[in-house]
Design a binder for these strands. Structure first.
Lengths: 238, 238
DNA sequence: TGGCCTATTGTACGATCGTACAAAAAAGCA
DNA sequence: TGCTTTTTTGTACGATCGTACAATAGGCCA
């Protein structure tokens, strides 16, 4: 895997273009052959492959081959492999921001008796819908894969992009469950996250059910909210 | 990573010794230098490294180096890398059998009103205790790492060694929660498993709590059982 | 002592990895 | 048209990968 540990350290970073160069030929009548945006091709190819196999198990050559471009073009646009990985998450930054906003929008005052379930739904539903969409399926899988990945590239991503989300959830839940020790809520978040990642990334129910059940059915969102919500309530009323 | 996809296919398998050769010199007074059991060294080294980084991110040379042994000796005792991986799980087969037995020992008849929690405990407690022990910490981490690993070597292990455990749990829970659709129990198992793996393998609470909370504290087992048990009850009483 | 089997070692092969680099092609602009 | 800049390409380097193999060392019994 080469992972990242020692090889090729200290070499100069390559030049790269962060935007897609000059103005795209913006003729009004745009029914032309439409020169392909190969930078986007590479980005989507990387997203899909990282989601399938995880960071270390994907080679730059795999990414280039799937995008239908020569290897060197990957380095030209994105520099090193790790920078490409980071860029994939930068590119989906809006998805993360949306989840934080939805969490912050929940009324967690003592008057709201459904605050716990509303919070779990605000946190989980965007991911579950994303998983069921065409354009977001790969990224939602990638998030699970990255959360589970023990490598330094993956944990760095989680720390930078998802720790703020976790803390926003924990803060809100602490408000919704006053008197409950923060340590418990923190562990509750970990359990809930483990469940959500299984919901989104699991490929096992299909096998265990003998092919009867499908993976990541978005209709199960209500059930999921009930499961995790009940856990938090029981967890914090001891 | 080289993962496993195509390289070196069809090559003849090497000879190997499955047992540690001739009789260990069984002198009664065994205070001698004690010739080291290098096969066991390799096995434990592999277990620890696979648990830390996952199958693909560990090289045979890493394993040999940690065991203090030349590379070729790994192949001599265990053959290919994948066979070594399998052997690590074979070596811990008793741990898996113990969990199944504990699940089967739970009284799931309608007269037992604590069946759900007893079942969750029977299923989770052995892992949580193993995680806290010196001799089992690495393997309990390895199980989580393997359950999360999308590679074919890992999914093969889960299928062979852990699908029977999952089905035993689901069957027992179906008996404890009569009238609850099996599909829900199956998904509940996935959520519970996701939570347990987080409990056992998580390294994030320490960071999120600012260093106040420790990872995988076995004292939290009761809390875990309450969390997951409540989920199953709420999940199946809709 | 010599023969036999096991254990151990160093080394080498082919493949794949991430990355760099120079040269060619294409596009934009005067 | 020429000139500059961006995009594209083929290729090569050094490192690391899994694995094989011949040679050596060591224990045990006749």
């Amino acid at each position: 895997m080469t992972s990242t540990r020692k090889s090729n350290a200290g070499t100069p970073r390559p030049r790269r273009r962060t935007t897609t160069g000059r103005t795209r030929r913006s003729v009004v009548a745009s029914a032309e052959p439409q020169r392909p945006d190969r930078r986007k091709d590479i980005l989507l190819s990387a997203e899909a492959l990282f989601a399938e196999r995880g960071y270390a198990a994907v080679s730059v050559r795999d990414i280039a081959a799937r995008a239908g471009v020569p290897v060197a073009l990957v380095g030209y646009y994105f520099g090193r492999k790790q920078e490409l990985f980071d860029t994939v998450f930068e590119h989906r930054r809006a998805y993360i921001a949306e989840r934080i906003e939805r969490i912050r929008a929940v009324d967690c005052s003592p008057t709201n008796h459904n605050a716990v379930e509303e919070l779990v739904r605000a946190w989980a539903e965007p991911v579950i819908r994303l998983r069921a969409s065409d354009s977001g399926e790969a990224f939602s899988l990638l998030v699970a894969r990255t959360a589970w990945d023990p490598g330094p590239e993956a944990t760095g991503i989680i720390e930078r992009f998802y720790d703020p989300l976790a803390l926003a959830f924990v803060d809100a839940m602490a408000e919704a469950l006053p008197g409950c020790p923060r340590a418990r809520i923190l562990w509750g978040y970990e359990y809930a996250l483990g469940s959500l990642l299984m919901y989104v990334a699991d490929k096992r129910v299909e096998r265990l059910s003998g092919g009867e059940l499908a993976s990541a059915d978005p209709a199960l969102c209500d059930d999921f909210v009930r499961f995790v919500g009940a856990g938090f309530r029981a967890f914090c009323s001891a």
